[in-house]
Amino acid sequence: MKMMMNLFSSFDPTTTFNLKLNWLSTFLCFLMIPPLYWMIPSRLNLIWKFILNALHKEFKILMPQKGVTLIFTSLFSLILFNNFLGLFPYIFTSSSHMTFTLTLALPLWLSFMIFGWLNNTIHMFSHLVPQGTPPILMPFMVCIETISNIIRPGTLAIRLSANMIAGHLLLTLLGNTGTMLTSLMINLLIIIQLLLLILEFAVSMIQSYVFAVLVTLYSSEVV
């Protein structure tokens, strides 16, 4: 009898806390249904479409080729989603890790360089010497421009990860001091934490936008 109870325990809607939380799995399918299939879009969908259309118009100025802006708007969406997930407790911010940021920056930069040097070699050589450079400074400018071009994926990755780490680290350090403060200071600490959380919300949006814009600028130089 006990063996039969263990066998059918997976069908029991109650959990160890005597709450019927297993029924929540029934509603998980609604999270997987794309909201575009609904007849009337929600306000959140309208706001998101407005943001994507604004980004599309801005990226189209830099990259007039058809369909190219889809890559950069998708990149913006991916980074923004991961940045927002990191604002929730007990969720690791993947965009604060160099493995994630370098995986995004390095292949994009490498593909731009290969495409540019194979198809527009003269154009790429002209970028190494800015217009109006004195002849005596041309060798130094070539070295400077080459180094600045090589470190671009590193600066892209470090900029995103450092900005995401800094805010989360500050929130953690301030939160750990709560046990040593008085009730008045704890109330002040909560207000400061809320302000920092709003700041992190803005930083997560700004950093995803900056990453996408810089990648767009780098790609426009090789065309």
Rank of each mutant, 00 (worst) to 15 (best):
L156M: 11
F84L: 14
S148Q: 13
I61K: 00
T15M: 13
T69F: 02
F115D: 02
S204H: 06
Q131G: 09
L197N: 07
L196S: 03
K20T: 02
T133D: 07
N187F: 10
L214W: 08
N149I: 07
T14C: 04
F140Q: 11
L75N: 05
C143F: 15
Q193V: 10
W38C: 13
Q131T: 12
L170Y: 09
S10R: 13
M39Q: 14
P89I: 06
L181T: 12
F72N: 01
T172S: 06
M113C: 06
N82C: 15
L7M: 14
L189M: 13
Y209V: 09
A54M: 12
S208V: 04
V68N: 00
R43W: 06
L199C: 07
I47W: 05
T73G: 08
N83C: 11
I114V: 13
G175P: 01
T16W: 06
M1I: 05
P135Y: 12
E58I: 00
Q131K: 14
E221G: 04
P130S: 03
L181W: 12
F72G: 00
T172I: 06
I114G: 02
M5T: 12
L104F: 14
A54I: 10
M164L: 09
M185Y: 15
S148D: 14
L169K: 10
N163D: 02
L85Y: 08
I186V: 15
Q207N: 07
H123K: 15
L197S: 15
T182H: 11
F72H: 02
I136W: 13
I47D: 08
K20C: 01
H127I: 07
F84W: 09
A157Y: 01
L24G: 14
P134Y: 04
M39V: 13
L128R: 01
E145P: 05
L214K: 06
L181K: 15
F8C: 06
N83M: 07
M138Y: 07
T14R: 01
P139E: 09
L173G: 03
L78D: 00
M63S: 00
M124A: 05
L104V: 15
H168P: 01
L156A: 06
L181G: 05
M3H: 07
L214V: 12
S220K: 04
I91R: 01
L46F: 05
M205L: 15
T146P: 01
L52I: 12
P41H: 13
I191R: 00
I40L: 09
W109L: 11
M205D: 09
W48I: 01
